[in-house]
Nucleic acid binder design. Sequence first.
DNA 1: CGAACAATTGACGAATGTCAAGATCCGTGG
DNA 2: CCACGGATCTTGACATTCGTCAATTGTTCG
Lengths: 246, 246
Amino acid sequence: MLVDTGSCERTPQACHQGRSENGCADCKVRLISVCSVLEPTELEELEALSHHLTLDKGQTLFGQDEPAGSVFNVIEGALRLTRLLPDGRRQVMGFALPGDFLGLALQVRYSVSAEALGPVRTCRFGREDFAAVVEAKPHLLRSLHERAGYELTLSQEQMLLLGRRTAEEKVAAFLLSLRDRYARIGHSSVTVELPMGRQDMADHLGLTIETVSRILNRLDRAHAVLLVPGGARLIDLSRLERMAAS
Amino acid sequence: MLVDTGSCERTPQACHQGRSENGCADCKVRLISVCSVLEPTELEELEALSHHLTLDKGQTLFGQDEPAGSVFNVIEGALRLTRLLPDGRRQVMGFALPGDFLGLALQVRYSVSAEALGPVRTCRFGREDFAAVVEAKPHLLRSLHERAGYELTLSQEQMLLLGRRTAEEKVAAFLLSLRDRYARIGHSSVTVELPMGRQDMADHLGLTIETVSRILNRLDRAHAVLLVPGGARLIDLSRLERMAAS
DNA sequence: CGAACAATTGACGAATGTCAAGATCCGTGG
DNA sequence: CCACGGATCTTGACATTCGTCAATTGTTCG
C-alpha cells in the first residue's frame, strides 16, 4: 500500500521552500529542461518567481483532479505519475525524471497524481505566474509544446505496449525505454536505475507484481540482465531488443 | 486485411484538391477546430494556404514515420490512427473525427499512420507554411497546445483502459467515450455511430475481434445496447456507466 | 535483533486468445 | 430485382497466458 503523507500544496508548511542558493545560472537541469530556451535575462525573470521544494519518499506532490496551483521542474529524484480507477485499480502513466516538467499542459486541474519515489528536489512556479511568462514569451510556449509532442509520442509507445505486447515484451521494452530516457538526460550506464518498486512497474505495464517479478528473475537466470538492488544491469542488449519486439 | 491504396502525399495526383467553394467563412468545423481562435483577417490569411483534400474509404492520409509534409483539419468523416509493431501487430491509437487537427505536435515525422474509415474531407496545410503562421500568432500556438493537452488526457484515459480494465469494461468505456466525443462536436444522439470495424475496435482496446464481437452481442442480448448496422444505440446508460467502472 | 515491508516462488484457476466453422452483410453485375 | 462472391461478423470448442492465492524468503531500519 502507498504511504500518502499529504500533498505539499495542501500543507505547504510541511515542505522546505526558498530560493536555490546559487540560482538558475548553475541549475543542474537547466540545459535539459524547458529553461534551456531562455536568455539569461529571461532566466532571472523566471527565477524571481521560482520556489525550491523538496519531497521525501512517498510524499505526494499533487493529486489527480486537484486544482493545478503550480507547475514544477524536476531537479533531482524521480516521481511516479498515476491515475486511479474508483475501485482502487491503479495505472502508472509514467515516471518523471530530472529535467521533466510537470503540468506542461497548463491545465486547470492535474490529470494525474505525482508521488516521490525517493528524495526529490523540484523548482516550483505558481501556475498563473508561469502562464503569464509563457504568454509573453512565445518561444517558451513553443518549447512546452515540443515537450508535449514528445510526451504524446511516449504515451503512444506505451499504448502500443499495453495493448499489444506480451508480458515478457513489456518488461524488456520497459528496461530499454528507461535506459533511453536516462541517456537523454545525460546519465548513460549499462546499469539502469530502478527507483520504483515492482508494484509500480506492474501498474505501469498492466501486469501483476508476481508476473513482473517472475519475468525479471527469468531474465536474470537467462543472463539477459543482472538484477542488483535498486536497478538492473542490461547484459545482453541485443537479446533484450529482440524480446521487446520494437 | 487493410486496403492500402497509397498515400495522398506520395501520389498527389490521385487526390481531389482545390480550395473549398465558399472558403473558411462557412466551414462546417470552423467553430470546433483550431481555427475558432482566429480573427476574420487571420482566417483569410490561413485560407490562402489551405488545400481541400478528400479520401475514399481505406485510403491512407499519411504513414507512420513518414516526413510530416502537411498538417490537416478533418472536416468530415473519420480516420483511424495506428501504430504497427514490426511483426504486424497493430494498435489503434485513436480515431480522428470532424474538428480534429492531425499533426498538431508539428513534429518532423508522423508518429502514426492515418487511414480513412469512409469518405473523408480534410483541409490541408503545408507544415512549413502552417508553422510560419503559428510562429506569428501565439494565440494559435496556445490553441494547439491546449488541444495537445486534451490529447494527452485522452491518451492517459486510454492507458488506464488498456492496462487495468477488463474486456467488458473496455467495450463499455469505449462506447461511452465515443458518445462523449460526438457530443463535444455537436452530434449528440443515443445512437453512437461506429464508423470503424470490429477489428479496429479490437486493436484500439487491446482485444481480439472475437472478444469484441462476443461482448457487443452479449450487451445487445442484455438490452444494454441495441446493435444496428454501423452503430449502436445505448439503451441502458447507467448500466453501461457502471460496467465501464469510470 | 526483530518487525514491517518488499520480493520471490509455486500451485491452481479464470479470462481471454486461438482456431475453425458458419452466418450475415454489401456491393457488383447480370 | 436478384444472385453471386468477398469481406465482415458471429459463435463454439479448446488452449494458453497471466492472474490469484498462499507460503516463503529477503531486505531495511529502528
